[in-house]
């Protein structure tokens, strides 16, 4: 039986005015959800609201995941630290698996090193582990952001167009790794995606945003 990880009760989202209203959805373990809709309709705002970065205008969001490390977030601009190496960026994912009292200046405990190396290996970035992220291409940076989330092992992953700028081969590598992580952790993924064909290939649920409403579509 898959547990419910998040529950949105009659949620309205937006900044000053509502972008999407009356959202009533559940997210369970094993879900891979793709959010589709035109630009500026509120897809990113929905992810940011679920992540807790902004508050819903009304309604309630219940998250049944740990507040530290339970949620993995890959923003549209990836949120990497350009001056740090690939390894240091990926390590940040593992760092939130430590106790919140683990001193920030201390190196990570040894048992996390294998997870970090494995995440980099799966995403094909092990050979550039010591390079600063700022000199990498857009596609390589997307793989680093994904590896950071894989090393984090979160229960719920929110990814905003994280497959953009990747060629077909890399999309397959990234999605295979993310799927494997979700299966291993029995977690869930919500991804904003512009390419409908790709979304339907990788997701088992589709949320379409239309006329300020979230409509769940059946994936054939």
């Amino acid at each position: 039986m898959n547990e419910v990880l998040a529950h949105l009760h009659d949620v309205s989202i937006g900044y000053d005015t509502p972008l999407i209203e009356g959202i009533n959805v559940e997210i369970s373990e094993g879900d891979v959800i793709a959010i589709l809709g035109p630009s500026g309709i509120g897809k990113t705002t929905l992810l940011r609201t679920i992540s807790g970065l902004i508050r819903p205008l009304s309604g309630e969001i219940e998250l049944a995941i740990p507040s530290r490390g339970g949620l993995g977030y890959i923003p549209q601009r990836l949120g990497l630290v350009g001056n740090l190496s690939v390894r240091a960026n990926v390590s940040m994912g593992a760092r939130v698996r430590t106790s919140r009292w683990w001193p920030a200046v201390f190196p990570l405990p040894k048992e996390f090193e294998e997870d970090i190396s494995k995440a980099m290996r799966h995403l094909g970035i092990e050979d550039i582990a010591d390079q600063p992220v700022r000199i990498l291409s857009g596609g390589q940076q997307r793989r680093v952001a994904t590896a950071r989330t894989v090393a984090q092992k979160p229960k719920l992953v929110l990814a905003d167009e994280f497959l953009g700028e990747l060629d077909d081969d890399n999309v397959e590598v990234v999605m295979r790794t993310v799927h494997a992580t979700i299966r291993a952790q029995n977690s869930a993924l919500i991804m904003v995606e512009h390419h409908e064909k790709l979304a339907k290939e990788v997701a088992n649920r589709i949320w379409r945003i239309k006329d300020g409403k979230l409509i769940e579509e059946v994936v054939s």
């Binding site: 940011r48 970065l53 977030y73 549209q76 949120g79």
Partner: peptide
């Protein structure tokens, strides 16, 4: 973006 990713992940202020 990096600060938001850190906040969403649950990183402490330190």
């Amino acid at each position: 973006a990096p600060l938001e990713a850190a906040k969403a992940m649950g990183m402490t202020r330190a």
